[in-house]
Design a protein around this nucleic acid. Sequence first.
DNA 1: TTGTATGCGTTATCAT
DNA 2: ATGATAACGCATACAA
Lengths: 325, 325
Amino acid sequence: MAGVSQSAVSRAFSPTASISARTRQKVLAAAASLGYRPNRIPAIMLSGRSYMVGVVIGGLQNPFYATALEQLATALRENGLQVMLMHVEDAVTLDSALDQLVSYRIDAVVTSLAIGSDTVVRALSQLGIPVVCFNSSRVGPWISTVNSNNHGAGLTAARLLAHNGIRYPVWLTGPVRNAASRARGEGFRQGLHDAGSPPAALSVLQGDDTYDSGYDAIARLKKRGVRPDGIFASNDMMACGAIDALRECMGLHCPRDVIILGYDNIPQAAWRSYDLTSFSQHTEHMVARTMELLDEALATQDTPLSRTYVVDAQLIERGSTGCAP
Amino acid sequence: MAGVSQSAVSRAFSPTASISARTRQKVLAAAASLGYRPNRIPAIMLSGRSYMVGVVIGGLQNPFYATALEQLATALRENGLQVMLMHVEDAVTLDSALDQLVSYRIDAVVTSLAIGSDTVVRALSQLGIPVVCFNSSRVGPWISTVNSNNHGAGLTAARLLAHNGIRYPVWLTGPVRNAASRARGEGFRQGLHDAGSPPAALSVLQGDDTYDSGYDAIARLKKRGVRPDGIFASNDMMACGAIDALRECMGLHCPRDVIILGYDNIPQAAWRSYDLTSFSQHTEHMVARTMELLDEALATQDTPLSRTYVVDAQLIERGSTGCAP
DNA sequence: TTGTATGCGTTATCAT
DNA sequence: ATGATAACGCATACAA
């Protein structure tokens, strides 16, 4: 235990250091018997890098985000980065959450948040902290984004509906602040227009990305006296709510009376009671792109990185659009 | 900017420090214009406390864990603690994950993992790091647990089945390594026995806590020629799979032909297609108990804390056991 | 290869 | 109320 310098200990735990095998053995043995574990905190001060990444997320009750977080956390760990998690539901806590992250000197931020006050974005930019956004339209010198091809998926959904001769299409949209949802809606309208469907035929229902809001939206539609025959929902949770409401409130069944598409391809979309056609966002690819962006941003620490990746969403056809199971 | 000492800056950002309002203003103004943010990293070295808590979790695709994580993360943040997230699926990565956490000098670990190699637990104990487990039977000097009343819920489930005159009960169990699942099964058997049901009448199906495993288990049951009339599933995901398989494979409907109970009360249990009676674990209470344990463990840093809280699970009756919606 | 010395950005102690 | 100084545990530049 005695007889080794402090630097010898440091070197023993550094794979690249020049140290004799004998000394390393001695140190490692002593460490094991004393229960000594190297402390990474001082290295943060010396190097200016913490190898911690702030992950700012909300809406974990949506299985899509839960799955995405799972994959992101795994990828970050495999790249030697720690996850400092911030669950945030409103702009106020977002502000303080980012304060926390900054004070811990995180190397970067990854977020899937639709919200994000501009002051916050500006603050991060000023500090030169790289930010990677999922499905956000935010732009700025230190901000990169990884988006799924929302607009293209909207086009595809419209084409599928047109191909099935839909006359009373419905767009079940998410919150207006959700840029991804807006893009899906724009693609959908565009696609309907391209297919010659009159804009007046489209019913637009406002939801908030929850099951209940999908259910309620269809209930409202019934009161309006509209009998839909094709629905595109901005996410799967709302689509599941819509399917249940169609059956319970209107006596309509999928795909016999109405076909329906969702987005995200959450596990529940494959559950037999829903059998929901959906767009898979390929979170593995999106996470891989995120890691690329992080690697690059952290390698070139001083130069702001601002790149956008668009990952194609893949249509997963199931029974809700008439596909055999 | 100039004209203030290092300590003045420190005091300006410390609410309890004795400093004149004038000096504080000056420092804060300079900090704002220079973009200076206090760094919490050195304080970790000085105080020996990082205010970071390792959260080790797996199976995030189960909405129960996603919701629990959401609530835990919120509670920790409100108590001034940071979440260092570790997503872990197997014992190997668990080992290295804990190494990481220890090297960052986390103050404590919270985990909902069923796995947990004993070497790991021993390592944490040796280091004197408090651990709080969710629904785990692990014990040790630094380990506390917050459990839902799994055994009691099993009893309740059996009583409900007996009350409905069930003759062919089924226990759809989770993985054997899952202590919570085992306790639920033991309570269930006990309850059936108390109600005078012959043990031979009970069919036991092995699942792995996923929807598919619940579905497949019922499909196997059909091959065995068993026609169940009452099912208790160790979690809601398996229960949902079972409901779908009962209908698709056996033509049985809930609650007309068979009644079914799950566990966790995930959001999907309330979805109209399942309308599943379930046990709510009251994660808010469990999280609150967890925070109490953490507060106490962190206050008395040197004395090992080892306490167990049991939080009653609440039966949420829905249509799958014949309750009107 | 090994040991010594310096510094990272704070907080706490002490003196003023 | 304020400033100077030591200390936290490590990595690195330098000397040996």
